[in-house]
Amino acid sequence: MVKLSSWTKHSGKSRINDASGSVNDETATGSFPVIRKKPPRLVEGSRMARLLSSLLIAVLCASLGWGYVIQLNNSTSIYETMSEEELTRLIGETSTQAQSLQQRKTELSNQLNMLQEAANKQQEAQRIAKQNEQTSGLLSGRLPATGKGVVITIDRGSRQRVDASTMFQLLEELRNAGVEVMELNDVRIVTSTYIDDTKNGLICDGKNISAPYTLKAIGDPQNLQNAVTIAGGVGSRLKVKFGSEVTVTPDDNIEISKTRQPSQYKYAKTIE
């Protein structure tokens, strides 16, 4: 009985304790930290020792702040703090990258060279084609021409009419002298031009022409003049045999506007 009462007394006391504790303490969950009373100082230090520890705390915190700011302002290269392996790996990576970039550069510059070459080739081909077009155009009579040369006039022969073979000889002499473009009485002289006799004149490429003949020739004026007026040449033959007046006038600006359509080649093909 005594024992029992002591039990109840004990439990009652503890309940009272619990009740007093639950007024401002909610430690039931156990997960929240308990605010304890400030424990009594274990070793009661002297005033000097407390000041010293405060000072030490201040110094430590100061060193923390100092270190933080220093690290914040630390702008030195990160490579200095890297280990040897990291640096080796980094150098390997970098050199591999540089190598691949170099390779890419070589490839691209090769491509560029090829493209430039191709462009140059095309340009060259275009230039040659244009030149050929001009040359063949002048040669075939497709293009009008201008330049310095001579104008040769042959009037009606006093003894007999100028015949086709002599006229053709004149053309051949001029060709030998390096004539480039010719026109005889409004007929463009090309490689296929023919001259034949008619009853009262000449026929040149299907067109009747009669004296006086006017032959415009573009070429070196001196050479052309020499070719006609050379002693024993076609000029003197015209004078002596046919009695016609031959005048050769050099001109710096001869214009030959007569053109003709080039014939379409039916059988001949170029060899590639």
């Binding site: 405060s54 915190c61 100061a62 702040g65 100092w66 933080y68």
Partner: peptide, 17 residues
């Protein structure tokens, strides 16, 4: 003391490098 020390440290760190 800790707060004071922190402030002092930061200031010193700003000026002394």
């Amino acid at each position: 003391a800790a707060v004071l020390g922190l402030i002092i440290g930061v200031i010193v760190g700003i000026f002394v490098k």
